[in-house]
Amino acid sequence: MSAVSAAFDVRGRGFARRAPLSLAWDWIDGRILPSAARRLALADCVGLRLAEAVAADGDWPPADRAAADGYAVAAADTLGAGSYNPVPLMAAVPVSAGEPMPPGSDAVLPFEAVYAAGPLPEAVDAVAPGCGVERRGAWMRVGDPLLPAGRRLRPADLGLLAAAGHRTLTVLPAPRVRILLAGGPRDGAPEQLGVMLAALVVRDGGRVESIEALPADRAALALAYARPGADLILSAGRTGCGPDDVAPPALADAGSLDLHGIAMRPGGSAGLGLAAGDGAGGVPVLLLPGEPMAALAAYELLAGRAVRLGAGLPAGLPHATADAVTARKLVSEIGCLDLHRVRLDGDGRIEPVGSPGWPGLAAAARADGFVLVPAGSEGVPDGAAVTMYRFG
Score class of each variant (00 low, 15 high):
residue 304 G to Y: 04
residue 297 A to P: 15
residue 289 P to V: 10
residue 298 A to S: 15
residue 286 L to Y: 09
residue 298 A to N: 13
residue 282 G to N: 04
residue 283 V to N: 03
residue 289 P to T: 13
residue 304 G to M: 06
residue 301 L to V: 14
residue 306 A to L: 03
residue 282 G to V: 00
residue 300 E to R: 13
residue 298 A to I: 11
residue 293 M to Y: 14
residue 300 E to L: 14
residue 291 E to N: 13
residue 295 A to E: 09
residue 291 E to A: 13
residue 296 L to W: 12
residue 306 A to Q: 02
residue 307 V to Y: 05
residue 297 A to F: 07
residue 308 R to M: 07
residue 281 G to N: 10
residue 306 A to V: 04
residue 290 G to N: 03
residue 288 L to Q: 08
residue 296 L to Y: 14
residue 293 M to F: 15
residue 295 A to Q: 04
residue 283 V to D: 00
residue 302 L to C: 03
residue 303 A to S: 05
residue 293 M to S: 15
residue 292 P to D: 10
residue 291 E to T: 12
residue 286 L to V: 12
residue 305 R to S: 11
residue 282 G to S: 03
residue 303 A to Q: 06
residue 288 L to D: 10
residue 288 L to Y: 06
residue 298 A to M: 10
residue 302 L to Q: 06
residue 304 G to R: 05
residue 306 A to P: 07
residue 287 L to I: 04
residue 284 P to E: 07
residue 289 P to D: 13
residue 300 E to I: 10
residue 287 L to Q: 02
residue 306 A to H: 00
residue 301 L to M: 13
residue 298 A to L: 13
residue 293 M to C: 14
residue 291 E to C: 06
residue 289 P to G: 12
residue 306 A to Y: 01
residue 296 L to Q: 14
residue 300 E to K: 11
residue 299 Y to S: 04
residue 289 P to E: 14
residue 290 G to Q: 01
residue 297 A to C: 15
residue 294 A to D: 15
residue 287 L to C: 09
residue 303 A to L: 08
residue 297 A to W: 05
residue 288 L to R: 06
residue 294 A to C: 13
residue 286 L to S: 10
residue 290 G to S: 09
residue 289 P to S: 09
residue 284 P to K: 04
residue 294 A to F: 09
residue 284 P to W: 02
residue 310 G to N: 09
residue 295 A to W: 03
residue 304 G to S: 13
residue 299 Y to M: 11
residue 281 G to K: 04
residue 286 L to P: 05
residue 298 A to F: 10
residue 290 G to A: 05
residue 299 Y to C: 07
residue 302 L to S: 00
residue 299 Y to W: 11
residue 304 G to E: 06
